[in-house]
């Protein structure tokens, strides 16, 4: 029993940073209606940025947020403004411009391989002040770094929801996500809104980077691992849905942690795919997605 509860705790902790990673992806999708295939690479960039911050300054990994968050926001903002905007402008009549998927995949290849050229292929770890520390609640172990990750996820998701609901920019993002033509008629500069949404997506990837640094390896293709996971999570939860991304993340985390009690981790990976396909058949639009959505 204790083992199961501990496994559930681990699953929740892991699932929270999965969910946070997926949150950035789902926000971008919600607004622009295209998948950002470079999301995992942005996460990798965030991880390297946090890694070097901690490594060079010896700061607490969460202090690195001060630099990493604005850096990634600007990066995402510029990426959308420079590379994706011209495509959206050219494909005004297309509902889901697949060209964006390809461009973001190009960005993925470039970022991952630039990282490979600059930093080499080795796996890096950095010792931070919270690495390896634990917090005990009764008999149950909470690794501190992951517990902070859970809190960060909750705070970030809360802030994002608040931002979308109560700020002027947030409201224009939601308006543009409902109907991009109508929103632009209402005087919303849709491309600025897209830039901001993309910036937020990248910024969240940066936050995940800082969260992961104390307990995760950094390497150039680390993003790919999260890419596939995030895709599964957002489809599970329903593309564009914020609660869906968080719930999907926790579900995947729980599956991995509980099943790993009984089988090797490669098999738990398979279970995730099986659950994914099962959900696809039972509720194709995902747990929180709209049912009929062309």
């Amino acid at each position: 029993m204790d083992i199961i509860i501990q496994a559930l705790i681990n699953g929740l902790l892991t699932g929270s940073y999965y969910g946070l990673a997926a949150l950035g992806l789902t926000i971008v999708f919600g607004v622009i209606k295209v998948i950002n295939f470079a999301h995992g690479s942005l996460l990798m960039v965030g991880m390297f940025a946090a890694y070097w911050m901690v490594r060079l300054t010896g700061w607490h990994p969460y202090a690195a947020l001060i630099v990493v968050v604005p850096l990634l926001f600007l990066f995402g903002y510029a990426l959308q403004g420079i590379l994706i905007k011209p495509i959206l402008e050219g494909q005004r009549d297309v509902r889901e411009p697949t060209e964006v998927i390809i461009v973001t995949t190009g960005v993925w290849y470039i970022l991952d391989n630039l990282a490979l050229m600059i930093f080499g292929a080795e796996y890096r770890v950095v010792q931070t002040s919270i690495s390896g520390q634990i917090f005990m609640l009764g008999d149950y172990i909470f690794p501190k770094a992951q517990l902070y990750g859970l809190i960060t996820t909750a705070v970030t998701a809360g802030l994002v929801l608040w931002f979308l609901k109560y700020t002027r920019t947030g409201m224009s993002i939601r308006a543009a996500s409902l109907d991009r033509d109508a929103a632009s008629l209402m005087g919303i500069n849709q491309y600025r809104v897209y830039n901001i949404a993309f910036g937020i997506g990248a910024m969240i990837a940066g936050i995940v980077g800082c969260v992961l640094i104390p307990f995760y390896y950094v390497f150039p293709t680390v993003g790919v691992i999260f890419d596939v996971k995030c895709f599964i999570i957002v489809v599970l939860g329903g593309l564009g849905s914020i609660p869906g991304a968080l719930a999907g993340g926790v579900i995947v985390g729980l599956i991995e942690s509980t099943f790993s009690q009984y089988m090797t981790s490669t098999w738990t990976e398979l279970i995730v795919y099986v659950v994914f396909l099962a959900v696809l058949f039972i509720r194709p639009a995902g747990l929180f997605g709209e049912k009929r959505d062309w």
């Binding site: 889901e96 697949t98 596939v228 593309l239 398979l270 795919y273 994914f276 194709p284 062309w294």
Partner: peptide, 28 residues
């Protein structure tokens, strides 16, 4: 059958996840 009825992004991600699922299955 389930995925082609949905928005294109679902199809893209689902086929990708399916492909990865097959690989993991075969590898194990």
């Amino acid at each position: 059958i389930p995925t082609l009825k949905l928005r294109g992004a679902y199809f893209a991600l689902s086929t990708m996840a399916f492909g990865e699922g097959v690989r993991v299955l075969v590898e194990n």
